[in-house]
Nucleic acid binder design. Structure first.
Length: 934
RNA sequence: GCCGGUGUGGUGGAAUGGCAGACACGAGGGACUUAAAAUCCCUUGGCCAGCAUUGGCCGUGUGGGUUCAAGUCCCACCACCGGUACCA
């Protein structure tokens, strides 16, 4: 009971559980797959003439797949941010059902993850137990909000029946390679094996080197505190994204996924989807495509040897390859820099410089990444003593090492053009290296030193080629062609995107369906677990810690690791992203134990239409998920990983669209009442359970949508909840007889603490509600509301749709009689927003009229009649020189000439025209008149 | 630094280039009540004038511009939020 609260506005505590129970019992929101039997009494079947039938895909209405980002069920329970997106999608799902679409609206749990495992480390309680408890809490909370999910499709990523298919998809990656010729993933069977791979081991190594899932000994981010490695994406500012613990670089054997092969398609196909520009831009930046050239710099042999006249990198001479986006500045390259870890450093360094170089390399290796970024501004570096030849100028240029050059990007080496690169200039200034201008800025007043934009090439000529006078773009083309002709370089495209580090040293994740064996030579190799042996279940453990030597927790389960035939199981597990990469596909056929999804279900719900024309047609179902709503925190990682998996599955013929999520909308963050981000330490966290208890689910939902535009960041206001709650109270009183309400309250007090919803039958309709013809004003109020709400729903403008409902109710409250013909459609408009209250009043209304109540969920959405909105008298503002002076009430069809005359003669306008000449009169038909007078 | 977003009353927010502030919150006043709560009604951007239901001026982060007309379009800038960063 709301102790401190005032009198309850309406009996939501009886209404909401009643309808939730009924929806659950009748499976009201169940979606049907092609070939599935639609029960004879199901309202979806009744509406579409499919009751009691097994519908073929073509007989089903157009599909609409409305998806939420499924939550991680944390121990803290639901947060008020969760229902924001869920309410938006629920409103849209209910609206689309009313409009006749076949809506798929599912929910599930992204339940692998660190917190349950860390809890297990402390208490010894199996993560499965914690997870199950948290899921139960989340499910209860979400269900108490009355969302129209099809719970028969609920998924849980930790359920073996689910992760069996996560492992299966991993095997698809494992058994595939990316064919550069077709730019697609293909079965490993199509991989050409070079003839010099003449041993079984050689062929195996070749195949392993091409798999989309491969093993690599790589420097990785190791987090001591978490006892695991992390993906690049999970390391923020040199600390773990989860918990903020220090991380260090360490070489380890890891599973990697070859996402870089898809860089170009991941970039290009952003054009196929309707996502916010900011998210597309973040993905583009993450992929980080840059066009340029690879250039080969010959190394000058140590000691006297004069520079060879030939610039060709032939005869086995050592070379340094660099990547540059500005090959046009090659003539200005006055020195080179290698990353300290670059493999050539050892061989290049002269004896005299070796001590300095070794010291610098050791210092760089010790630096945590945090230090490297924080101390980023001041350039450091050491001369190796070696020189290279600038292939354009033939000049001997010194080779340095410096940690501003990263081994992981490009080739790990750069040509430094200090005149036209900010970092190179800083470095050159510090170490007194020569600076040569090779680009002239378009504006002669601009200082060429440090000018990094496009301009005109200067000082760029040798015996064979001249770039002088060419604009940057042309100069790039010319020099690249010259380099290619001389075999000194080639056009290249580089990406920032790295391959995806896919293994974790954790317990609470999907085990890899992989075993390790030794061949006759004793060489270790990996091999897939056969499909019919899936799922690979993790072993039970007593201790969830990693082993002291850094082996994953599963390594403790010796019996589990060692198979009878001597093979050893992989003990790493997959990262949490794995389960969320494909859950939207499992929803399509969540209970299928023979396939990850039946092709017919996949084709129907994801839509086989994928030609451009069909994508652009708003009338046809979207290819893929029609609407995906979630927070921006997944702008890069989840959305990029899921797109990658989807594309692999698409290439291998398992799904029919190139992109998974056609339309994406990000809900904005909800801040605390103080305008700050909600956090336990600030004490400004709003508990949804309390809101639900005090105001009910409908008010909660309505408030979250009324706060402002969905995408916007906005602060919580409990006062605001009271506002929409009062609105729902007015709706209730619009329909209900006050006397009967008193009877209900009386019955409730005698009925004890848990009253039976059946006492709602004591409610009588207000005597003002009658079956009589509405007045024109009443028709207009309704149809204006229908139009506004419908338009706003189509554009996801929920806040203004609710305002329209309020305007209608405020007006309807003043009517002495309330025609059923107006109130009934109003309930349909209200239903997506406040479904419990709408259903209850809908039922009461029909019972009072002696009609059998139909299911409001599937009642066809009302259409507005433009004829009813036509005004015969309209108000026209009259301006003089752009300032409002009067308003005229005129017939709507008044001709412009007459409107102009009326405006000029209007009494309030006259004084402002006195002594002036009318120069011009702008008459905007049905809008306004503006008189220009001087 | 770069990329993206946002700046409108006391507050959340409305406004296809055409009456700025819809709808709500808060506040003030009134009705009902023994009283309070709830409910209902009125007022509510600022300044100035007036007994007056009124009238005038100013107002959408700042400065310019386009236009009969700008919160909305263009240019320059400022502030805040989010992302990202020696990416060659």
């Amino acid at each position: 009971m709301p102790g401190l609260m005032a009198r309850r506005q309406y009996p939501f505590h009886l209404i909401e559980p009643k309808w939730q129970a009924r929806w659950a019992a009748e499976q009201t929101f169940r979606a049907f797959n092609p070939g599935e039997l639609i029960p004879a009494d199901h309202p979806f079947g009744l509406r579409h003439g499919l009751a009691g039938r097994t519908a073929r895909p073509r007989e089903l209405p157009p599909k609409c797949y409305i998806l939420d980002m499924f939550p991680y069920p944390s121990g803290a329970g639901l947060h008020v941010g969760h229902p924001e997106g869920y309410t938006a999608t629920d409103i849209l799902a209910r609206y689309r059902r009313a409009r006749g679409w076949h809506v798929l609206h599912p929910m599930g749990w992204d339940a692998f993850g660190l917190p349950a495992e860390q809890y297990a480390l402390r208490t010894g309680q199996h993560p499965r137990v914690t997870t199950a408890r948290n899921i139960a809490t989340f499910r209860r909370q979400i269900q108490s909000l009355g969302f129209s999910y099809d719970w028969t499709r609920e998924v849980d990523t930790t359920d073996p029946a689910y992760f069996k298919w996560t492992q299966w998809i991993f095997l698809q990656l494992y058994h595939a390679w990316f064919n550069p010729a077709t730019q697609r993933a293909e079965s490993l069977d199509t991989l050409p094996i070079p003839s010099d791979c003449d041993t079984e081991a050689g062929r195996r190594a070749w195949r392993d080197a091409h798999r989309l899932a491969y093993v690599s000994e790589q420097p990785v981010w190791w987090c001591e505190a978490l006892g695991t490695v992390l993906a690049n994406e999970e390391v923020v500012d040199g600390k773990s994204e989860v918990g903020g613990f220090p991380v260090v670089r360490r070489p380890m054997r890891q599973w990697m996924l070859r996402i870089t092969a898809y860089a170009e398609r991941l970039l290009r196909d952003l054009d196929l989807v309707q996502w916010p520009d900011s998210i597309k831009e973040m993905q583009r930046n993450w992929i980080g495509r840059s066009e340029g050239a690879e250039v080969v710099f010959p190394i000058v042999p140590p000691e006297p040897a004069p520079p060879p006249p030939e610039l060709r990198a032939a005869n086995g001479a050592e070379t340094i390859r660099v990547f540059t986006t500005r090959p046009d500045t090659l003539f200005g390259a006055t020195y080179m820099v290698l990353a300290p870890e670059h493999p050539l450093v050892d061989r290049l360094t002269t004896p005299a410089q070796r001590p300095a170089v070794e010291a610098y390399r050791a210092a760089a290796a010790r630096k945590s990444d945090l230090e490297r970024t924080e101390l980023a501004r001041e350039k450091t570096g050491v001369f190796t003593g070696a020189h290279a030849l600038n292939p354009a100028t033939g000049a001997r240029i010194p080779i340095w090492i410096a940690d501003y050059v990263l081994l992981s990007y490009g080739t790990g080496a750069i040509m430094a053009v200090p005149a036209h690169d900010t970092r190179d200039l800083e470095f050159a200034d510090k170490f007194q290296l020569p600076v040569v201008q090779v680009v002239q800025p378009p504006d002669p007043a601009t200082d060429w030193r440090g000018f990094v934009d496009d301009g005109t090439a200067v000082n760029s000529a040798n015996a064979e080629i001249s770039l002088d006078g060419l604009p940057t773009a042309e100069a790039k083309r010319r020099i690249t062609a010259w380099l290619e002709a001389k075999g000194l370089g080639r056009r290249t495209v580089h990406y920032k995107l790295r391959d995806w580090l896919f293994s974790r040293q954790r317990y609470w994740g999907e085990p890899f369906p992989i075993v390790w064996r030794r061949d006759a030579d004793g060489t270790l190799y990996h091999e897939a677990v056969p499909e019919d042996a899936l799922p690979v279940l993790p072993s039970e453990l007593d201790d969830y810690k990693p082993t002291p030597d850094g082996q994953p927790p599963l390594a403790r389960a010796h019996d589990w690791v060692r198979l009878p035939d001597g093979a050893m199981r992989e003990t790493n597990t997959m990262p949490q992203w794995a389960g969320s990469c494909w859950y939207y596909l499992r929803y399509l056929d969540a209970n299928n134990c023979r396939r990850f999804v039946h092709p017919a279900a996949e084709k129907y719900w994801m839509g086989a239409a994928n030609s451009k024309s069909e994508i652009r047609n708003p009338k046809s179902p979207a290819p893929g998920v029609d609407l995906y709503v979630g927070g921006t925190e997944h702008a890069v990682l989840h959305l990029l990983y899921a797109r990658f998996w989807h594309k692999v599955l698409y290439d291998l013929g398992h799904v029919s669209t190139p992109e998974p999520f056609y339309r994406l909308v990000n809900q904005g963050l909800i801040l605390g009442e103080d305008g700050q981000k909600m956090s336990k330490s600030r004490g400004n966290v709003v508990n949804p359970d309390h809101i639900l208890r005090d105001y009910g689910a409908d008010a909660f939902r309505l408030y979250e949508m009324f706060m402002g535009p969905l995408e916007m960041v906005k602060p919580w206001s409990t006062k605001g909840v009271e506002g929409v709650y009062r609105f729902l109270g007015r709706v209730w009183r619009l329909f209900v007889d006050e006397q009967s309400e008193t009877a209900l309250e009386h019955a409730e007090t005698t009925d004890g603490p848990r009253p039976d919803p059946a006492i709602l039958d004591l409610i009588r309709l207000s005597p003002a509600i009658q079956e009589l013809a509405p007045t024109p004003a009443q028709w207009k109020a309704l149809h204006a509301c229908i139009k506004k709400v419908t338009d706003d729903l189509e554009a996801l403008r929920f806040n203004t749709a609710i305002a329209a409902l309020m305007i209608f109710v405020n007006e309807a409250m003043t009517w002495p009689t309330r025609p059923v013909a107006v109130l009934r459609p109003f309930l349909q408009l209200l239903a997506p927003f406040a479904p419990h209250l709408a259903e209850e009043l809908w039922q009461r209304l029909h019972l009072a009229l002696g009609q059998t109540p139909t299911c409001l969920t599937y009642a066809p959405w009302p259409e507005h009649d433009p004829a009813l909105l036509v005004e015969d008298q309209i108000e026209i503002p009259v301006q003089v020189n752009g300032r409002l002076r009067d308003k005229l009430c005129v017939p709507a069809d008044l001709p412009p000439a007459e409107l102009e005359r009326a405006a000029l003669t209007a009494p309030k306008v006259q004084p402002f025209l006195a002594g002036k000449t009318v120069r011009k009169v702008i008459v905007v038909s049905r809008k306004l008149v503006n008189v220009v007078a001087t």
